[in-house]
Amino acid sequence: MTADEFVDLVRDELGLDISAEHLDRGFDQVPGWNSINSLRLLALLERAVGKPLSVPDLLSAPTLGSVYALAAGG
């Protein structure tokens, strides 16, 4: 999964209006973000990468970019 695909996933599946520049910002600067979205994104990422991901790791990630890194590299 590329960073662009990750951004598209967040935009098209969660409906959040973000762009690549949001990847490095804190979640408080991501419009509409909450813990429910984190878990929705987790389920989407697990389906995309085909393996389970750690929820505590994901919930403690400071930025969208670090969530992407967890999914892409983990």
Binding site: S35, I36, S38, L39, L42, V55, L59
Partner: peptide, 9 residues
Amino acid sequence: PRLSVYAGA
């Protein structure tokens, strides 16, 4: 269980 534990849903 994950939604329940982590998000209180």
